[in-house]
Design a protein around this nucleic acid. Structure first.
Length: 425
RNA sequence: GGAGAGGUGGCCGAGCGGUUGAAGGCGGCGCUCUCGAAAAGCGUUAGGGGGUAACAGCCCUCGUGGGUUCGAAUCCCACCCUCUCCGCCA
């Protein structure tokens, strides 16, 4: 959520920066509603002040006639306040809705562009392996090894669901455990196990609601939502809190399953485990002081990259242009791992600086020093990493001519020392 | 799921429908006393809106949202949450 006062006072600049998103925003509606809201508010406050003073006078008035007269006056005043209040509520409701649907402003240094074609590749890491055979896509490799079962996934849960089985399931579990340990031990994160079901307010806090309700799974009777990412519960841990001086930065890492009800465009990414309604992810969430968030993002990207580098998987870092930014991000850098079987770069990590956008929505504040006014911290998050695509990259990059694939060295201790994954016995 | 109790400031805890944004205590901070500390005494100590050069005054907030009333922490309704007992359960 953007600061309403900032929008008001720097409307021209806000308008210019929003234009670079190439999307419609309710800026004009907000400005108009805000003006009406403030006009009515000051009137209503003045009337309220009069009523408060008047009501106080009633309690002191001894003369019954004068008292009755005062009460009648106050009643009339109350009616006017009531009418204005109803109008105010209506406007405030519209204003709140509009501002919740306003996207974050892109940072000034984000490259301007219309869509993903104008994203900027920042750097490459690693050599793409040269094969002396034709590398297979994982959806051919994995079923033959008996580690992924697509048909039964569809039978039980429908399209875009699959079973991991045997060493496939174990590989994912091993990767999760290893990633968590890496972030905890090398990067100093605190491990969190979050709830997978959250209230609406949590999704509002991180920005999935109200705009993207159709992409979420919702349980009607309990009014709870399945999380699309651990970012939601973890960021909202501190909602409605004022953090004491000295508590920042807060660095959390959480593994969770993620659920997305999105309507996948027909025919795209239908094969394999690249895109499903349910997937696992290790997510890092950071709360930092505002002037520390730029450095925090750079660090976060490298922490994600550390995972890929330790796995020996070639990747590239891509900076999103303005038109490809997510709703909540001021700046976003993705890591894409090379998948030689699919023959494409797969997004395995998305690292974003939200500045105070989420903190404002979730009402998260901190006190810079004792006695100081609370301010909004900056929040950031980044995947470290998304599991299915990491597994894809492992299978495809480490595959051998005989249809088996090697277990990356760092994962071997988590796989009981196993070095190769071959057909089930 | 059934029965009951309750949600007040950083914490504990008062609060006849009207000088109660809130007694008292604890904790925190400041000052006095002291060589210093403790003790004691005095003072101070919520968030937000709007506003200001900065203050003050003003408006809102006693779980949340409605209602009654000239006036609600106090009365009524709904919801949320916590606790106790029973049931169920990994």
């Amino acid at each position: 959520m953007l600061d309403l006062r900032m929008i008001r006072e720097q409307a021209t600049e806000v308008r210019e920066r929003l234009a670079t998103l190439y999307t419609d925003t309710p800026l004009d509606e907000i400005l108009a509603l805000d003006e009406r809201h403030r006009a009515i508010l000051s009137e209503v406050e003045e009337l309220r002040a009069r009523r408060n003073a008047g009501s106080k006078a009633v309690s002191k008035e001894r003369d019954p006639a004068a008292r009755d007269r005062q009460i009648a006056e106050m009643r009339a005043l109350g009616d006017r306040i009531g009418a204005l209040d109803r109008e105010l509520d209506e406007i405030k409701g519209r204003l709140d809705r509009a501002i919740l649907e306003m996207p974050n402003l892109p940072d000034p240094d984000v490259p301007i562009g219309k869509d993903d074609a104008e994203n900027v590749i920042l750097r490459h890491w690693g050599e793409r392996r040269r094969f002396d055979f034709t590398p297979l896509p994982h959806w051919e490799l994995a079923p033959d090894l008996g580690i992924v079962d697509f048909e039964r996934g569809v039978k039980v849960s429908g399209s875009r669901f699959y079973f991991l089985k045997g060493l496939g399931a174990r590989l994912q579990r091993a990767t999760i455990a290893w990633m968590l340990d890496l972030h905890i031990e090398r990067h100093g994160y605190t491990e969190i196990y979050p709830p997978y079901l959250v209230r609406s307010e949590a999704l509002v806090g991180t920005g999935q609601l109200p705009k993207f309700a159709e992409a979420q799974y919702h349980d009607e009777p309990s009014d709870l939502w399945l999380i699309p990412t651990a970012e939601v519960p973890v960021t909202n841990m501190h909602r409605d809190e004022i953090l004491e001086p000295g508590t920042l930065p807060l660095d959390y890492v959480a593994y969770s399953a993620c659920f997305r009800r999105e309507q996948f465009s027909g025919g795209r990414d239908t094969r394999g485990i690249k895109r499903g309604h349910q997937f696992d992810k290790v997510e890092m969430v950071r709360f930092v002081e505002p002037d520390a968030s730029d450095a925090a993002l750079t660090e976060l990207v490298q922490q994600s990259a550390d995972v890929l580098e330790a796995l020996g998987l070639p990747y590239r870092a891509v900076q999103m242009c303005t038109g490809d930014l997510s709703f909540t991000a001021a700046k976003k850098i993705d890591l894409e791992v090379w998948a030689p079987g699919c023959d494409e770069w797969l997004e395995v990590s998305s690292c974003s600086n939200f500045r105070d956008f989420q903190a404002r929505r979730a009402n998260i504040r901190y006190r810079p020093e004792a006695g100081a006014r609370p301010v909004h911290p900056h929040t950031l998050n980044g995947s470290g990493l998304a599991l299915p695509r990491t597994i894809i990259a492992i299978m495809e990059n480490y595959q051998q001519a005989d249809g088996t694939f090697l277990v990356p060295e760092v994962l071997q201790p988590y796989m009981g020392g196993r070095e190769v994954i071959g057909p089930a016995q």
